[in-house]
Structures are given as C-alpha cells and as structure tokens.
Design a binder for these strands. Sequence first.
DNA 1: CTATTTTGCGCAAACGTTTGCGCAAAAATA
DNA 2: TATTTTTGCGCAAACGTTTGCGCAAAATAG
Lengths: 339, 339
Amino acid sequence: MIKKRVSIKDIARLAGVSSPTVSRALHGRGRISDLTRTRIIEIANQVGYTPSLVARGLVTQRSYCVGLIVPTFADPFHSQVAQGVEEAARRHHYSIFLASTDVDPVREVEIARTFHGRQVDGIIVSASRVGNRYADWLDETGMPMVLINPHIISDQVHSIYHDDYKGGCHLMQHLLARGYRRIAYIGNERGARPSVERQRAWFESMQAAGLQPEVTVNGPNGRFNGGIMAAEQLLAKADTCWHAPPDAIFCYNDTMAISAMAVLRAHGLQTPADVAVTGFDDIDVAEFLDPPLTTLRQPRQQMGAQALQILLALIEQTPNVCVPQATAMNGELIVRGST
Amino acid sequence: MIKKRVSIKDIARLAGVSSPTVSRALHGRGRISDLTRTRIIEIANQVGYTPSLVARGLVTQRSYCVGLIVPTFADPFHSQVAQGVEEAARRHHYSIFLASTDVDPVREVEIARTFHGRQVDGIIVSASRVGNRYADWLDETGMPMVLINPHIISDQVHSIYHDDYKGGCHLMQHLLARGYRRIAYIGNERGARPSVERQRAWFESMQAAGLQPEVTVNGPNGRFNGGIMAAEQLLAKADTCWHAPPDAIFCYNDTMAISAMAVLRAHGLQTPADVAVTGFDDIDVAEFLDPPLTTLRQPRQQMGAQALQILLALIEQTPNVCVPQATAMNGELIVRGST
DNA sequence: CTATTTTGCGCAAACGTTTGCGCAAAAATA
DNA sequence: TATTTTTGCGCAAACGTTTGCGCAAAATAG
C-alpha cells in the first residue's frame, strides 16, 4: 500500500530536463537559469516532492542524523538531556535516532553498531557505562562521539560532564551550615564516576568537619526502587552505627531522594524535622513535592545542547581547530524545604 | 576525519568474488556454496564489516525505521509511551527517529514531512494535535501512521486511545463513594479529546449523583504550571460558587494534580483531609508523593507497544487482512492516599 | 565580425546495497 | 554415456540522489 515516491526524475520528465538539472534547481547552486529554476520549483511543489534524504545521504556520506543513546526514559533527567539534544539538533537540521540501553553496557555497544550501520554522523551517549572500551571501535570507524556524564572518563573519547564533586561540596556545605551532623550518603551502583564523585564530596566534607563519614549504602540502581532498598538498609546501618537515624541524607539523585523520603515517612520520620534530605539533578517535580526538595540543579538541557555542539564540531572537523576533550559544567544549589 | 566504510565490495575484492556473492553469503539466502559462504563471513568479521542500512533501504524501499513524534519529553507520560514503542521496535529490529513538537501542530506536520524524507516505514504520533488534516497527506504519501491518544479521532487515520470516559467514571465513582460532594474538575486546553472525555465523565457523574457540575477550569497546558494556574483560578471560582473550597479535585493528569496539590498546600489546605485530589496516568512518581496520588493508570508502555504492532501490520499490509481503525484501551483505578 | 568568456544543461559515474537473469560447471538421472 | 537438473556465481540494473566534466549556445570583449 506504500506509494511510490515522486522522485527527482519524475520532476525532470515533467519539466523536460535532466535530473541533475532538477537537483541544481532545488538547491539553487550550480549554474542554472532563473527561468528553469523557478519552473522546476513550481512543478516540485505542485507534485508534492519530498527529497529522499536517504539517497542524498548515500552519495554525500552525510546523513544529518545523530544517534542518541540513553540508559532509560524512566528517569526525567535523561529525558531532559534528550530534550536539549533534540532542540539543538533541530536547529541544525539534524534528526535524531533514539535508543535506550536499559543500563546494559552490552546493549550500549550493540546500539552504537546499529547506529553506525544507519550511517549517523555522530553519536551522543548519556551516562555511558562502556568507558574506554569504545577506543578501538572509534579508531576503526572514525565515528564522532560525545559522552555525557559517562561512568568512566577516558581521554580517548570526548565527554562533557557535570562537576559532581564541586556540586556535592555545595550541598554538604549547605547541610553542615544548617547544623546537620549525622549525614548519610545514598549512592548508585559502585564504581560509576558520578556516584563516586558525589560520595567523595560527602566523605571529604564530613572529614573536614570532623565528622565520621561512615553511614553510606549503594542502591542497586538510581531509580525509585533503588532508593527504597538503599534507604531501608541505610536506616538499619545508622541504627547500629549511631543508635539513631541520620539527621540528614545526601542522595545520589532526586529520584532516589523521593523514594527515600517515602521510606522515611513509612518509618514515622518527618522531613525535614527528623531527617533532612537532599537530591541531585533538580528534575521538574522536585519543586512540587512536600516538602520541596533541596537539590543541586544540573543544567540538563544545556548539557544536551552543548554535547551536540561539540559533536557537530567533531563532524565538521576542520583539521587545525581542536575540540576540547572534556568539558566540565557546573550546577547550582537549589535550597528548598527538605533541609 | 570520518573513515571510509568497509563495503561489500572491499570484502568481494578480498575474497576474490563479486559483490552480489558477498551479499548472498551474508544473508544466507540465494544459491551459494557453504565453503565460500563461511569464507566470506570470516573475512567480513575480520575486517569489521557493518552493512549500510542506508544503501539497503534505498534499494529495498524499507528502512526498518519508524518515526515517533511526541509533544514533549517533559511529561513522564510521553516518555513511558516512547519507552513502550522503543522496546517493541527493538524486538522487531526497527530503529526509531524521535522528535518533539513542543505542542505545536505546525511543527508536528513539519516533522512528519521530514520523517517522510527520511523514508521511515511508518510514523507514530502521541497526543497528535493535527487531527484529520493528515488525511490528504496520507493519501498522497501512503505513509502508514498510528496516533496514540490523538486530540481528534478521525476515521481517516488509525488510532489507539485510552477510554478516558470510562476511566473518568471510575474515578468519579470512587470519589462519590468516599462521600465527596463538591467535586471540581481541572482540565487541559479546550477541545482536546482526552480532556473533553474526562470532563464529560465528571459532568455526567455529577449530574447522575444529583450534584451541580459547576466548578471547572481549563489550564493553559497539561504541565506543572498549567496545574498551578488552573488550581488558583479554581479556588477563586469555588469560593464564589460554593463559598467554600472544593472537597475534591479531579485533575486532568498527574502532573497537574501534583502542582495543584502544591497550590492547595500554599493555601493552607491539606490533602486529603481538606481536599482530595485525583490524577490521571499514574506516572512513576505518583506512588511516592506525600500523600501518594489516587489516579487512573493508563497502560502506557502497552499503548506504545500496541501502536507499534498496528503500525507494523500497516507496513506489511497483506491486502485482505484489515487493521482495526481505532483501538480503545482500558486503564485501571489506583486508589492511594490522596483520597 | 571574430575570439574569448560565460552560461545552461546533459552525460556519466558514484554512493552501497539487493535481485532477476544467464551461463557454465557439477551433479543427478536415464 | 547422453541428457536433464541442480548448483555456484557473475553481470547488470535498480534505488534516488549529487557532482565533475564536457559541450553547445549565448553573451561579452576586442
């Protein structure tokens, strides 16, 4: 039932010219008379011509597509990054292929391969778990690639990341200034850079304040259920360590913070009266919670947009211009009712 | 810096055969000896060959891509629908192009055109605002298309939608059974089918219960700020109408419900003690709010997956098999603490 | 009015595949 | 052994573009 496309040749026949002439007319470049050009454009509009970007891509070797790989759509943080990428891409007349890895590094490289087959001009990966294992593949394919907040920062591949350590320190300064002392940390899976950096900020800030950074638990993931499991364990750990619940919890991200707060309520603990809670990211809903969440806002859309900028620079790589390997971005402390 | 792809011809040269032979070897179909087939596959692996899906698509006229158009990534509801589409697509070896309209119908058709140029095999639109204006274009292009919860249901284009009226009635039954009487409705922009249907459920349920369905306000959008503006107006309206706040608010969706609850708090009203609140969709965070949100869960992922199924049926249209024009899906009442 | 430049357009090749057809060699049948 | 069938593979065309080159006609210069 799929109709035959109207092609450049059809227009050529209608106009009594050759197809390259139509191509030139439609682009307005090359040598062509005004007369035939307007006539061809006229006809093209009449028959509702849409150029096949596929065919064009094949010959020009530029698809004007970029691939975007995210771990999951479930976390609004990634959606917002995607939004940033998408808007920037549209401005530059790029389309985006989207795929989610479900936090599986194997799937991540599979998707990258598929995208290569689709001849995307470049790939952006948010929260990549693959690390420097991309190096060989990149060497082989020459595929431009930018990682956003990768779990490992490699000097083989361009990345753009949020300065989680600095952000974490801001949060800790705020908590310490408010007088919290038994501050616990809820992390994401072990070893991932963002969690490690935030934890380091917590750890060092605690030490610097003369406090014991003992009570910390890593959730199995950075989602709601990860926050639940981590919070449950954390309360138990605090009990054995301090014989009391923490008076503040620094959570890996907003999502975990939200479910952690639900766990606290279930245990009869009020936020912030009994336990203060901080998140990370400032997802949209954070502002409307009860209590509203104190958090560190990552410039999500900006990071997405910036990643695309860098990717474009790599794609159009003029040999003598050098693109920065790693770009750090800074967040903003947002103080709300949860602390 | 972009490297030249290794093509089927390169392999052919290496193996001392012709390129069609390589093609046949790689697909395993056509007449080819086991010996050369394995040899060719061997070589292909060695040189790291990735077939160009672009070139293949050009000749087969099947790209194994579908376009997905959503209004925005900001609302988790659409992200989840996208997730459903994406997973189903992956299972069928399809890739997806993603674009967001920012709730602009003009942009919606622009994107559809772009997707047509990209030679996607079909298009899925979530919450389409274009309505039956697609009809001509579809006639022209023959592009398979499925709409999810469109704002207008047209019989010219396949759609799959949630039965909002029935869902709304469930919510209303629940509220009425709980003894709420001054029930107000917060809607999304005027005229859009989902909001109209939910409002109708509210209206008719109120009438059937012998109550006056007077207090209703449409927000400027279905997002957080839409909920805020609507809730503020609603309280004023309730005051002039009932000389009291509503005792329950039926909100268009969870997002509006969340921000409406924040407005209530700001006015010193407790949920559910003073005002009960219901949402719609059951986005992930609904469960973890304080109070957890009573809502009507739309089978989001299922709807996405189902849309893709239908789209595939349209793409592979066997002439005598008929694909249902409109498919209704049913949600599930989720009762939580907000009522 | 000739010599040069410019203009307008067609031809052909290319991008990387798939696929129908043909033909020789090998295998199966008589 | 002669005939038919099957097998293995190459050739060429096709998908819808873009682009370098060439050539005639038109425009300009001398």
